Computed example of a mutant assay.
Amino acid sequence: MSKIILQRLDDSFDRWDELLKLILASFAYMNDRIDPPSSALSLTPQSVKEKARSEIGYVALDDSQLAGCIFCRPEPSSLYIGKLAVLPAAQGKGIGKRLLELAETAARQRGLGVLRLETRIELTGNHATFARWGFRKTAENRHAGFDRTTSIEMCKALI
């Protein structure tokens, strides 16, 4: 039985190549399903490291293997959740939910009462998962240059 360990990304973390591979593997199912393509495809190990420095990041380790991650960015009235990723082989173990619980704690510590995220319009499975986790659709958005909805915003009020 494996043990999931959650760790804050800080200067002691040095597995940036692995973390990028985790994100890309977790988001691979979106390739050829969403337009425009995921911003994950433009990440590099260095940009992930910089993201961890400018945002709040956590990784989930399944024994010693990286299994998931989350990046959070404080906004004036919410904590934005970005790059929530769990390896396909590790899905269904509650890792995503545990990472979101860390985000809830980070939001509360900063006096923020809402978690906010965006998910692509085509990814209806994600919409359903986030709804089960307490998120509600709050807006429809479009990427620059598109005349159709490309993503939805979902928020979770923290009580």
Rank of each mutant, 00 (worst) to 15 (best):
T150P: 08
K97W: 07
K93N: 12
T44I: 04
E50D: 15
L6K: 08
M1L: 08
I152D: 02
D17R: 04
L24K: 01
D147F: 07
S77A: 04
A107P: 14
A28L: 06
L158I: 14
M30H: 10
R33I: 15
Q109S: 09
P88E: 03
I81N: 00
T138E: 11
R53P: 13
E118C: 09
L22C: 07
D35K: 08
L41W: 12
L9M: 09
P76Q: 03
R132G: 07
I121R: 12
Y80R: 07
L61N: 06
S78P: 11
M154F: 03
A157N: 11
S151H: 08
R98D: 04
A90W: 05
V86P: 04
F27H: 11
W133T: 12
D147V: 06
S38V: 03
T124M: 01
F146I: 05
L112G: 04
C69P: 15
A107H: 06
T119G: 01
E101V: 05
S77G: 00
E140Y: 05
S2D: 09
L100C: 02
A139K: 04
R136K: 15
H127V: 10
A131W: 12
I152R: 01
E104T: 10
I159T: 13
L112I: 11
T44R: 01
S64M: 09
E50R: 03
L6M: 09
L84I: 15
P36W: 07
T124H: 13
S64I: 13
G125Q: 06
A139C: 07
A89N: 11
I56Q: 03
K51G: 12
T150V: 02
I95E: 05
I34T: 07
L19A: 00
K93T: 03
Q91E: 12
P37H: 06
A103Y: 05
R8F: 11
L9F: 13
F71P: 13
A85G: 00
L61H: 12
G134T: 06
T105S: 05
L41P: 12
E50F: 05
S77N: 11
P45L: 02
I5W: 08
I81C: 04
D14S: 13
A157V: 12
L115W: 11
A67R: 11
L99E: 03
E153P: 11
G68H: 05
G96D: 04
I23N: 02
